[in-house]
């Protein structure tokens, strides 16, 4: 391929839009499967286990880098195409009738995409950045009845590892060896549990993404706003996919009387079902008792 054509040619730009767009559709399906675990009752442990796997497994990491690149590339390419397309009609019509020949979604892919980009940015600040970088990310605890008393335990990543919360010093908490009250454990590097006296690591604890998510959507002040914004963004995504899914196949040259009706059907189903299921989750969490 002529090297300069890789980015310059109108059609090659469309191939990239389509490939990154379809890859992001796969990403959405995978992400949704993970999120749906939030609907299962008493599922905090499973969800946090899943979150740990998704942030540490090397294969998943590779996929996540591909996803970041795809989003960036798709957004930049999409904006470049849109600017070029605007330039192709420097004088606009006095009277137009776009509804006569095209769908609302197909005409507004750039606006829809930009709204999705805003959502992705806020979403990453609220969840992804906290999970990856926040030193104060909550750690998972579990209430267990011990001899008739309810007691709170930190949960270790190996089965059966429970550490009473009152025996674990908070980060930066001053321990006073003069009193007999020295706590047995300290937490280092966000999730590692050490014996406070011996500097020996005894367990890895779970980050509590489940609690973070629940608290986020149940926040007394802003929970409702976050929920509404999330649901709105899924509506935007639905419109983007309503046109985008089938459009990607056309861009890649797949169009035949046999395949196209099937692709259009799957695209419409995907564009309704996936955003709808995504949107149900924050609503469920917000109203959860």
């Amino acid at each position: 391929m002529a090297k300069s054509a890789l980015l310059k040619s109108s059609i090659v730009k469309k191939y990239w839009m389509a490939l990154t767009g379809l890859f992001l559709c796969l990403f959405l399906a995978g992400h949704l499967a993970g999120n749906l675990q939030l609907l299962v009752p008493n599922n905090a442990l499973n969800f946090n286990q899943y979150a740990l796997f998704m942030t540490t497994n090397p294969a998943v990491k590779l996929l996540s880098y591909l996803t970041y690149i795809s989003i960036l590339f798709h957004a930049i390419d999409g904006i470049m195409l849109t600017i070029q397309n605007k330039k192709a009609r420097p004088v606009s019509y006095a009277k137009t009738n776009p509804a006569a020949n095209s769908s609302l979604a197909s005409r507004n892919m750039a606006v829809l995409g930009t709204l999705i980009l805003v959502f992705i940015a806020t979403h990453m600040v609220n969840f992804w950045a906290k999970m990856h970088f926040d030193k104060n990310m909550p750690l998972m605890t579990k209430e267990i009845e011990v001899q008739g008393n309810k007691q709170k335990f930190y949960v270790g990543t190996q089965t059966g590892q429970y550490y009473p919360v009152e025996q674990v010093a908070l980060v930066g908490e001053k321990q006073n060896p003069e009193t007999m009250m020295v706590k047995q454990f300290v937490i280092k590097n966000g999730t590692e549990l050490y014996y406070s006296q011996a500097d020996v690591k005894t367990a890895d604890l779970y980050k509590d993404l489940y609690k973070l998510t629940l608290d986020f959507f149940k926040d007394p002040k802003l929970g409702l706003v976050f929920t509404i914004f999330y649901v709105f963004s899924m509506l935007v995504l639905a419109f983007h996919l309503w046109h985008g899914f089938q459009s990607a196949f056309q861009s890649l040259g797949v169009n035949s009387s046999k395949l196209t009706p099937l692709i259009k059907f799957v695209g419409k189903a995907f564009s309704i079902v996936v955003p709808l299921l995504f949107a149900i989750i924050p609503i469920f969490l917000h109203f959860k008792k």
């Binding site: 109108s10 059609i11 730009k13 469309k14 191939y15 195409l81 070029q84 397309n85 330039k87 192709a88 009609r89 776009p98 006569a100 020949n101 095209s102 769908s103 197909s106 005409r107 892919m109 046109h243 089938q246 459009s247 056309q250 861009s251 890649l252 040259g253 797949v254 169009n255 035949s256």
Partner: peptide, 28 residues
């Protein structure tokens, strides 16, 4: 200086000769 197709399908509907979008896919 023509723009890039975003598959809105408006052309196919307004074309006086009924040229189908399949031709764009074939070109791609």
């Amino acid at each position: 200086g023509f723009g890039n197709c975003t598959n809105t399908g408006a052309c196919e509907i307004e074309c006086p000769k009924g040229i189908s979008l399949e031709n764009i896919a074939r070109m791609n």
